[in-house]
């Protein structure tokens, strides 16, 4: 029962933090006309019935990002949400198909300002200072593998994995460079991170931009994206948000093509989101932070099941 109290206290801390900063708590639909078309996300969906409307397929959110961006475009200002999110086939020591995300958007913030805010929230939650390391994706990647992630290709990464004894990486990653980068990162880099040290990894390769803006002012173009790691666990993922509707639609189209190539379920592009971006998303940065994992780290739990009232096996 202790974890119930710990979760309640954590949510209290989070809410107080955002009240102090004048960030508005919002609630958006879990079911929506469209969801992420990310190739690596497997989405729950359902069909409406009864006499409410004509039967429609609705998708459960993988994060509240799209609905919150529509609010931002509508002029809501800085907002946050504690939202149940859903991802099929994700179950394990650090995953439950239904999980809680804290997601927030800061209008006018750039990536650095948001990273600072994430840090101060984490310090507040842990109630202590934690040794911190901020480094670029390239520095970290190169330090451990000697491969430059911005100049590599899928084959080099697969060869690297094969040398480490994982020739099956070729099957797992397919032809995708970003998959190969993610594979190498999680297999050989993440386990090397120092314990009890908070890592902010920033400036991702362009192929991993997702919904982030590109930084094309430097010689090497990077994505304005960061991830937070603590005790080998991925805790948060943030972007300086892409506001260009055209570019975003192109990235979604690319996802759809890849989904078709991999014979995955077809999902629609969220026209509402594209519409909102067209009408004008203010410059902002946003981040999603896994609350179940944060709770695990705060309480030293070994498995996500320990911090859930009813994990999926008993749901």
């Amino acid at each position: 029962m202790a974890f119930l109290h710990q979760r309640a206290a954590l949510y209290q801390t989070v809410r107080t933090f955002f009240i102090e900063k004048n960030v508005l708590e919002v609630e958006t639909p879990i079911l929506s006309n469209a969801s992420s078309c990310d190739v690596n996300l497997d989405i729950f969906s359902t069909v409406t019935g009864g006499n409410i409307t004509k039967a429609r397929r609705l998708y459960m959110q993988t994060s509240p990002e799209f609905a919150m961006k529509r609010l931002l475009a509508a002029g809501a200002g800085s907002i946050y949400q504690i939202a149940k999110s859903f991802r099929q086939a994700e179950s394990g020591r650090f995953h439950n198909p239904e999980f809680s995300l804290l997601e927030w958007y800061r209008v006018g913030f750039d990536l650095e300002e948001l990273m600072e805010e994430v840090l101060s929230l984490l310090i507040r939650c842990f109630g202590r200072k934690i040794p911190l390391k901020i480094l670029t994706y390239q520095d970290l990647f190169q330090q451990i593998t000697t491969i430059n992630p911005h100049a590599t290709n899928q084959q080099e990464l697969i060869n690297y994995a094969a040398l480490q004894g994982n020739s099956e990486a070729a099957t797992i990653c397919g032809d995708s460079l970003s998959n190969a980068l993610d594979y190498v990162f999680s297999q050989y880099i993440q386990p090397q991170l120092t314990k009890d040290q908070l890592y902010f990894v920033r400036d991702y390769p362009v192929c991993m931009a997702m919904l982030a803006k590109l930084d094309d002012k430097k010689t090497v173009v990077t994505a304005k994206r960061f991830e937070v790691y603590f005790n080998n666990l991925e805790l948060a993922n943030g972007y300086e948000e892409l506001t260009d509707a055209k570019q975003q639609e192109q990235r979604f189209q690319q996802d759809i093509i890849e989904r078709e190539e991999q014979k995955l379920e077809t999902v629609p592009i969220d026209k509402h989101l594209i519409g909102a971006l067209e009408s004008g998303l203010p410059d902002c940065s946003g981040v999603a932070l896994g609350l179940d994992r944060l709770l695990m780290l705060m309480e030293g739990a070994r498995s996500i099941d320990e911090v859930l009232a009813f994990p999926i096996g008993r749901a």
Partner: peptide, 25 residues
């Protein structure tokens, strides 16, 4: 162990004992 890196591909990281040789891989 189920692994899903960042936004990357989901995979299982498995420790296995070869029952013929006894080796763990």
């Amino acid at each position: 162990e189920f692994v899903r890196p960042g936004k990357g591909p989901a995979f299982s990281r498995v420790k296995i004992r070869n029952l013929k040789t006894g080796r763990v891989i």
